[in-house]
């Protein structure tokens, strides 16, 4: 259990995870396979954006306004994990990314709830995100041969970004090893129901251990930032 409040910048990686995944999910607007999913992904993105805003607001003394934190930092200043910056790919790819992330974020927020008001607030919302991802994983994995193959491929491709989730974030008192074991057991359980194979490969590349938390990102991240920050940088102070 966590006993002490997070130190000053400890919540930045959590805010960056939420903002970047929100931006990725927003890319589905207008492209989701069915209307209900369009709405679901946009709603999850909105929840995540709200989390990012609340976490950034708590850092304004150190890092400036929400807009400055989101739109005026360079790539190396972002502390999000590499998993959330990975491109959407096909729907199965997005769902597996959602599963890996929400099965991490929800129990992490549950642990932080006693010391971080935002975590106490958002933990129940993230339970819905997680449920959404779990049920889609089962639906796709135990669906057609095509959906099964695509979901397995997504799991194999994204697995290398999962160990990073449990690299300790300085200033957050969490039993990271215990969180990692719980996560792996949960993923095994969902994959079992979905008829999917848990990837055997290492959960990280040799060069990438915890790299996102240190400000090192994968190639697609630069393009995401360019799109996300373009308007604010081109028209500083623009409002609706």
């Amino acid at each position: 259990m966590t006993a002490t409040a997070p130190q000053s910048l400890a919540t930045l990686p959590l805010g960056d995870d939420a903002l970047i995944l929100s931006q990725r999910l927003g890319e589905w607007a207008g492209h989701a396979p069915v209307l209900e999913e369009e709405v679901a992904l946009a709603n999850i993105a909105l929840d995540l954006l709200g989390q990012a805003r609340a976490l950034y607001a708590g850092l304004s003394d150190v890092l400036g306004s929400e807009d400055e934190i989101a739109y005026l930092r360079e790539e190396r200043a972002f502390r999000n994990c590499q998993l959330v910056e990975q491109p959407n790919g096909d729907f199965a790819h997005t769902i597996v990314r959602q599963l890996f992330f929400s099965a991490y974020q929800q129990p992490l927020y549950a642990r932080l709830a006693p010391v971080l008001p935002l975590a106490a607030k958002a933990v129940r919302e993230t339970a819905y995100h997680r449920d959404h991802a779990e049920q889609w994983t089962v639906r796709l994995g135990d669906g057609t041969e095509e959906s099964h193959a695509r979901t397995q491929r997504a799991a194999d491709a994204l697995w290398r970004y999962t160990d990073e989730l449990f690299e300790p974030i300085e200033g957050l008192e969490v039993e990271w090893q215990e969180l990692a074991e719980e996560w792996k057991a949960d993923i095994r359980e969902v994959f079992g129901r979905a008829g999917l194979t848990v990837p055997q490969g290492p959960g990280k590349d040799a060069w990438a251990a915890g790299a996102g938390r240190q400000g090192l990102h994968t190639e697609p991240f630069g393009r995401l930032l360019a799109e996300m920050q373009h308007l604010h940088r081109s028209h500083p102070g623009a409002t609706w």
């Binding site: 129940r124 339970a127 819905y128 449920d131 049920q135 089962v138 639906r139 135990d142 669906g143 057609t144 129901r193 008829g195």
Partner: peptide
């Protein structure tokens, strides 16, 4: 209570 689980209609094997 814990967050409410929603029901799921049948999949191929379930």
């Amino acid at each position: 209570s814990a967050p409410v689980q929603v029901g799921l209609s049948p999949t191929r094997h379930a």
